[in-house]
Design a protein around this nucleic acid. Sequence first.
DNA 1: GTCAGTGCAAACTTTTTGCAACTAC
DNA 2: GTAGTTGCAAAAAGTTTGCACTGAC
Lengths: 162, 162
Amino acid sequence: MDSQNVKDTVRQIFTEYLNINGHRKTPERYAILDTIYSIEGHFDIDTLYTLMADQGNFRVSRATLYNTIILLINAHLVIKHQFGNSSQYEKCYNRDTHHHLICTQCGKVTEYQNEDLQRAIEGTKLSRFYLSHYSLYIYGLCSKCDRANKRKKKNNNYKKEK
Amino acid sequence: MDSQNVKDTVRQIFTEYLNINGHRKTPERYAILDTIYSIEGHFDIDTLYTLMADQGNFRVSRATLYNTIILLINAHLVIKHQFGNSSQYEKCYNRDTHHHLICTQCGKVTEYQNEDLQRAIEGTKLSRFYLSHYSLYIYGLCSKCDRANKRKKKNNNYKKEK
DNA sequence: GTCAGTGCAAACTTTTTGCAACTAC
DNA sequence: GTAGTTGCAAAAAGTTTGCACTGAC
C-alpha cells in the first residue's frame, strides 16, 4: 500500500470513528492526521507542532494537538510511548509490529522486529484482562556507547596506575 | 530471603556502588534506600516523599530523592517505569521478573508473571545491542472496566431506539 | 579544610484547563 | 441556532537547577 493510499484509508477510518462517537469532522483534525501519517518513526507534540507550523499548510494550537491525538489513539491510528521526558507518538495503521531498543546512555531508540517474540507475546493467555496492544522496551547500550565506555574505562585504568 | 536480610544486602550493594564511583555515603541515601525497600509495588517520587515525611524517621527534599534515585537505578537496585503521567519506580533486587498489565481506562496496573514469556524475551538474540533490562507493558481493559463498558453500551442502545 | 551533597526556592518543561470566539452540523 | 472545537493564556504537575549551607571524607 503506498503512502497516499494509507493516508486515504486512515482518513476513512478516522471519519467513521468520529461519526460513531458523535465528534465533529474539523479540518484541524484531518490536517493533524495527515501530518502524522507523513512522519516516519517517533515524534513528540512539540515536533508535530513545529512541523505543522513550518509547513504552513495548517496551523493548530498545542491544545488541539493534545485533544486530537487522544482521539487518534482511541481510533487505534496512533500509539503513545513514554520513554525519555516527553511522550512520544507514532502512527500505527499498516505498520509492522516492532519493539524498541533504547540506549540508556544516549537515549537513542531503535526499532526492532522479531516475529517469534511477537507471537509469544500475542499468544499469551491473560485471565480477566482484554489485550488491546502492548509495548516492549528493551534497555541497554547501543554499540556506539558501548565502545565509548570501553575506551573510557581503559583511560581510567591508566590514570589509576599513575 | 526475609525482608531485613534483603535490606542489609541491598545496603551492602549500594555501599559498594558508592565506593566504586567515589560518592559519599550520606544518611539520606541509606534512608531512601531503606524506605524504597519497604514499599511493595510501584511508587512515584511524591508518594516516596510523603511516606518519608510522614514516617518522620528521616526527612529529605524532593531534589535529593531525584538525585538519589538516579544512583539507585545505576546500581541496579531500582527500576524506572513511565506509565501514566509521573515516573513510577520499584525496587528490583531479589524480585521476580514480571510484566505489567495496564488498564487504558482506569489506569490500574497489575503485575503479571509468565516464565515462558520471560525466557522468550531474554533469549532473544540482539545484534549490536547489549541488553541490560526490559519492560513489557500490556495495555487493555481490566475486567471491571470491561464490564462497566458493556453496561454503558447496553444503555446507549436503548437510548438510540427511542 | 575541602568539596560533594543537601534543602530550598525559583525556573523550566510538558500537559491540562478555563474561557471567549468560532464553526460544523 | 447551538453545542462541540479551537486558540490563547493561565494554571498545574513533574522535574531540574542555582545557590548558600552542611557534613562526609
